[in-house]
């Protein structure tokens, strides 16, 4: 029953893709320029008579083949394979995210355990949370003096809040009963933290991490456009400056794919720590 439905859904997905590609080809179909050459030249200058310049699916397909057939080449600062660019981005996201975990988990634990700390820090969190991570960029560039480190900092700051808030919330809402069990068993604070509170709050914490990772991947593209040098975001910007739209489209699809894989990864982790209560 479910398998049958999955098959039908896959078929439908393929159909939608085919329709989309068909519509795209039709829209970018290049008609032959009409009659006289002077007029044609003029029309071309005015951007008329020819196609819109938007790449056809075939052109984009070419870009896919070229880039994916040699993902790790390196021919100077402005010409690197897509694998290298994505690796740079992932490295920044990974490092910034790891730093955010290192701060958000202990701090979130403390906030979740202590209502006093929660109330004291709440105004700061509320104020800092809605700030676009990119708004920090000038400050980061000025004080850190390194574009690479600034990118990592921006990822750190944007991943911090969802994790911090979810950790605090998860820790604060651990069932009273479980804490009481630990208390009657005279369980030490460390063991209580790691064997009772952490597993109890883990699903909430991982939800926070998943949200953070999603945001981090959104932000890295924008940050790299600003900072330049390497990374998938810079690649997009660079290809835009080259007016190589097929490459831009290729990069956009890659960004989507990597983001999807990252999200699925955290989805898996989330499933791993989720427990059934009833």
């Amino acid at each position: 029953m479910f398998r049958k439905q999955a098959f039908k859904a896959a078929l439908l997905s393929l159909l939608i893709l085919a329709l989309f590609l068909g519509a795209w080809s039709l829209a970018t179909y290049r008609k032959d320029a009409p009659a006289t050459s002077a007029d044609a030249e003029y029309a071309a200058l005015m951007g008329k008579g020819r196609s819109t310049g938007f790449p056809t699916p075939a052109k984009v397909g070419e870009a896919f083949v070229t880039y994916l057939s040699e993902p790790f080449y390196d021919r100077g600062p402005n010409d690197k394979g897509i694998g290298i660019q994505v690796t740079h981005s992932l490295w920044r996201v990974g490092l910034g995210f790891a730093l955010a975990v290192a701060v958000a988990l202990p701090l979130g634990f403390a906030i979740g355990m202590s209502p006093l700390l929660f109330q004291a820090l709440d105004p700061f969190i509320q104020l800092l949370k809605p700030i676009s991570p990119l708004a920090w960029m000038p400050l980061a560039l000025y004080s850190l003096k390194d574009s690479d480190v600034s990118g990592i900092f921006v990822i750190f700051i944007c991943s911090l809040w969802p994790m911090l808030i979810n950790t605090a919330f998860g820790v604060a809402s651990v069932r009273r009963d479980w804490i009481n069990v630990a208390r009657t068993l005279e369980v030490g604070p460390l063991r209580k933290a790691f064997q009772v509170i952490l597993p109890a709050a883990a699903p909430t914490i991982l939800t926070g991490m998943r949200i953070s990772m999603g945001i981090a991947w959104l932000v890295i593209v924008a940050a790299e456009m600003l900072v330049g040098g390497t990374g998938i975001g810079y690649f997009v910007w660079n290809e835009w400056n080259n007016l190589a739209l097929p490459n831009v489209i290729f990069a956009v699809v890659m960004i989507g794919l990597v983001g999807m894989v990252l999200d699925q990864l955290f989805g898996r982790l989330q499933k791993l720590v989720t427990y059934r209560e009833q």
């Binding site: 009963d177 479980w178 009657t184 883990a202």
Partner: peptide, 11 residues
């Protein structure tokens, strides 16, 4: 202590 709602750790 045996708790009213059994209080087992589900994980």
């Amino acid at each position: 202590v045996v708790f009213q709602g059994h209080a087992l750790m589900p994980w």
